[in-house]
Write a protein that binds this DNA or RNA. Structure first.
Length: 732
RNA sequence: GGGCGGAUAGCUCAGUUGGGAGAGCGCCGGCCUUACAAGCCGGAGGUCGCAGGUUCAAUCCCUGCUUCGCCUACCA
């Protein structure tokens, strides 16, 4: 009421006989946004109107012949040579026998139809405007229920579509129907009941939106409100700049009643918060209250401040206006966001929110928008039953790409259910191995050097993950955050870290090393759970409560979000770990390609001239042995290549695996495949390096990088070929 | 009619200061290895829609075209 009255007093709300979209079934006015346009196939009728005092006819074309009963003119283009002589003449409208003028208006498209446009000001938007311009009479022929009214003469009481058929029949009978064509066009339907809407002249309440929109435009231009992703800004501006006055009255029985009364004696309109005792101007006490209610979006537009106690200056209002972010779908950018902007700026003198995050819509498998009416909605409860609430939440976050819709994919959902399961199992493994850990004895501050390679590595990777996840969240890139977490948890934490630390956890040897490992395991798992918690609230809370570090059972959701620990940003450790991973992968590759089952133990021979690499290999022998299932490792400068064996190059290391003679055929194939791959890469780089332009114009660090790569590839290729030749010689 | 977005592996889609082509699912081969077979290990698979242009260098920037989709509109 407060808002309505203030706007009314400022002249921003007015009541006017205007052309609006009307739903004859719901019997209410509809705003532009409540009308859905849909393509339908109809007939295009050519009607012959007789010119008065002449035997000529003017032919007009229409898809709605029943509206001819309300015609008050026929318009032609002022420059249309075909009709120069008839402008100003009069037409005797068939059936109702009304005299109407032929007028000239540049709005008419000479190339469309016959170039003659019938004008029905009371039942067409354009005709209404033309009617105002030419002071034409407005004659309603269709009533609020979609029936022909008394102005329709013989058709009075007929349904509008029934009347359409009858009029066509009558025109045919009278020989004034020129022709009928098939035609398809967009027709407005009521968004609620899907009935074809009827543009109708009607007395309604309107808000003058132009003055409100100006401020809303400027707020976004000046960045006081950011729309994310920014592509939607353009849509927002487009709409705001072309905004039309907003019809806010609805003839339905639910909603806020418009606070207005009409004096039965003098016709005065009274807008007031309370029921007025009498008319302000004639003092009559015979007042009729307005029965129209407000468009639901009118009240929704007030949400950011009316929910905080406005118009009182409450603490809540001070604290929560403006809010930081509004998250919503683009489909209500205009319905709601734009209106909240306008009302917020008007009544609070400030934007209602700093950021508007526009996400896509979840669509069905065919990519169609969910619709309550069509019933193609996927029930989230059903998905939760089948996949789990955490899985669904994570999946939605992962599939949400800013600026585009998502088709809910069941295979992706299933993949993330596996991920949730993986987390569960990994945590079970961790908890099993932490049950003898007493947090009290945990060493709080130890230098990184005290920890094992995998410990230092995983903490470094955790740092990286924390930073990237935070960055993604700050930029509303939820899919990036989920991908980062998936990758880190599954492929770094589970695949490598957990596998490697089994050495320390299972072996009853170095007790201190075991405790340090347990400490890292606990801390990293705890961080993982916290990072994951926004995406998988239930499983993370459940596991978190079982961690030995959580004795007071506070919820994970109020725990501190993880921060990176710079002590563990260590490139050398990362590099050493990568070497270990590369070596293990190389051995696994041989095993896989040679079809050697894991049960079959192999021996690894490592030849390298570089002291540092040799040391690193020696340091990490136990990891290599355990993860690559190698029973014996031999490392050194003078390592002989075995007579029958597979070869893989890792950096400056030659890795050999002794095999049987019978494997050699397979090895030849493997080497050839590898050589082809390397050659392809290598030739591309060589081509680059032989290009003078590249050498002189590309940034030096890029050139250097390419040179190094080319050299490495060449080395690799030579050794592969050497290996291949040796085998060929042996095999004869 | 106007505007916007997409076209990348068999499918669904990621990929911005231009230099490495990627993920999930599916597919092929090998494994019940004491957290997990809803799993582990290895592997195959792509002139990044087409044609030009800019650049030493284009999936990425520019132009045109083909094609799919969305929003929007006052051709009666």
């Amino acid at each position: 009421k407060e808002v309505f009255i203030r706007l009314y007093q400022e002249g921003l709300i007015y009541r006017w006989d205007y052309i609006i979209n009307w739903c004859p079934r719901c019997k209410t006015a509809l705003s532009d946004l409540e009308v859905e346009y849909e393509q339908i196939f109809v007939k295009f009728y050519y009607l012959k109107y007789p010119l008065k005092e002449s035997d000529r006819f003017i032919t007009v074309a229409t898809t709605r012949p029943e509206t001819m009963l309300g015609d008050t003119a026929v318009a032609v283009h002022p420059e249309d040579e075909r009709y120069q002589d008839v402008v100003g003449k009069r037409i005797l409208l068939p059936i109702v026998q009304r005299e109407i003028p032929v007028i000239a208006d540049p709005f008419v498209d000479m190339t469309f139809g016959t170039g003659c446009l019938k004008i029905t000001p009371a039942h067409d938007f354009n005709d209404f405007e033309i009617g105002l311009k030419h002071h034409l009479e407005q004659i309603r022929v269709i009533d609020d229920a979609g029936r022909m009214n008394k102005n329709a003469g013989p058709y009075h009481g007929m349904d509008r579509f029934e009347c359409r058929n009858q009029i066509v029949e009558d025109f045919k009978r009278d020989g004034v129907l020129a022709k009928i064509e098939d035609y398809r066009h967009m027709v407005g339907h009521c968004y609620r009941c899907k009935t074809i809407v009827e543009p109708t002249l009607s007395l309604q309440w309107f808000v003058k939106t132009k003055p409100l929109a100006q401020h809303a435009i400027r707020a976004v231009q000046e960045g006081r409100t950011r729309i994310i992703p920014s592509v939607w800004e353009k849509t927002y501006f487009e709409w705001m700049e072309n905004i039309k006055d907003w019809c806010i009255s609805r003839q339905i029985w639910w909603g806020h009643r418009i606070p207005a009364w009409y004096c039965d004696s003098c016709g005065q309109t009274i807008v007031s918060k309370e029921t007025p005792p009498s008319c302000h101007s004639c003092h009559s006490n015979r007042l009729t209250p307005e029965t129209d209610v407000l468009d639901t979006w009118f009240s929704s537009a007030l949400w950011p401040f009316s929910t905080m106690g406005w118009p009182k200056e409450t603490k809540l209002l001070k604290r929560f206006y403006p809010t930081s972010v509004l998250v919503t779908g683009f489909d209500i950018l205009f319905f709601w966001v734009a209106r909240m902007m306008m009302m917020g700026l008007k009544f609070m003198n400030d934007v209602p929110f700093k950021d508007v995050y526009i996400h896509g819509l979840v669509r069905d498998e065919k990519g169609e928008k969910y619709s309550k009416t069509r019933g193609n909605v996927v029930d989230p409860i059903d998905l939760i039953d089948r996949f789990g609430a955490d899985t669904l939440r994570f999946t939605l976050a992962a599939l949400t790409m800013p600026g585009s819709d998502l088709k809910l994919s069941e295979s992706r959902t299933e993949g993330y259910r596996h991920f949730a399961n993986k987390i569960w199992n990994a945590s079970r493994f961790a908890l099993m191995n932490l049950n003898d850990l007493h947090p009290k004895t945990m060493v709080i501050h130890l230098s990184p050097e005290a920890f094992s390679l995998p410990d230092r590595w995983i903490r470094g990777r955790l740092n990286h993950t924390i930073r990237e996840v935070k960055r993604s969240l700050e930029n509303y890139k939820f899919h990036e955050a989920t991908h980062l977490l998936y990758q880190f948890i599954w492929h770094e934490f589970c695949d490598w870290y957990l596998e490697m630390i089994k050495l320390f956890l299972y072996q009853e040897g170095d007790k201190q090393m075991k405790e340090l490992t347990q400490q890292t395991l606990l801390e990293v798992l705890e961080s993982i759970l916290k990072l994951l918690h926004p995406f998988m609230p239930f499983i993370t809370e459940e596991i978190y409560q079982h961690l030995p570090s959580q004795k007071d059972h506070e919820s994970i959701m109020i725990s501190k979000f993880p921060e990176p620990d710079p002590d563990y940003d260590d490139e050398e450790i990362e590099d050493e770990m990568n070497l270990v991973i590369e070596v293990i992968s190389a051995l696994r590759n041989i095993r896989g390609e040679m079809n050697l089952p894991p049960g079959q133990q192999i021996i690894g021979l490592f030849r390298t001239m570089e002291k540092e690499l040799e040391q690193k290999l020696r340091r990490n022998q136990s990891f290599i042995r355990s993860l690559a299932q190698v029973k014996e490792l031999k490392i050194g400068k003078e390592m002989e290549r075995p007579l029958y064996g597979a070869f893989v190059g890792v950096r400056e290391i030659e890795v050999f695996v002794p095999l049987e003679r019978s494997h050699m055929e397979e090895e030849v194939k493997r080497l050839q495949k590898e050589i082809i791959r390397i050659e392809k890469e290598s030739s591309l780089l060589k081509k680059k390096l032989s290009n003078e332009q590249f050498l002189s114009k590309a940034p030096p660090e890029i050139v250097q990088e390419v040179k190094e790569k080319a050299l490495a590839f060449q080395n690799q290729q030579e050794r592969l070929e050497e290996s291949l030749n040796k085998i060929k010689r042996i095999l004869g």
